[in-house]
Amino acid sequence: MKRHGWQSLPYRLELPGELMPGEPRITVTGGEVCIENHAGLKTYLSDCVEVKSRDGLIRIKGDGLKLAAMTRSDIVVRGFVICVERL
């Protein structure tokens, strides 16, 4: 994904992307996917969950997916996770 202006500054300086506010962070732990700094839920099905983010869409594919928790900033999806894609 191409970044412009000041958004690309941490990458140019080789700083961790976590320093950028609002940058989505995806953590996959076993059968659980945690997405921080999301921008909303687009699709919620048992085999596919799509989460909006500032940079685009994050798609989680799997089986028996369940929304374990959802707050304004975080989403936790549990189930048999096959892949996590950034669109």
């Binding site: 839920l41 687009k42 304004r72």
Partner: peptide
Amino acid sequence: EPARFLEECTE
């Protein structure tokens, strides 16, 4: 869009 319902709940 039932997912939007969840968003609204969160909001």
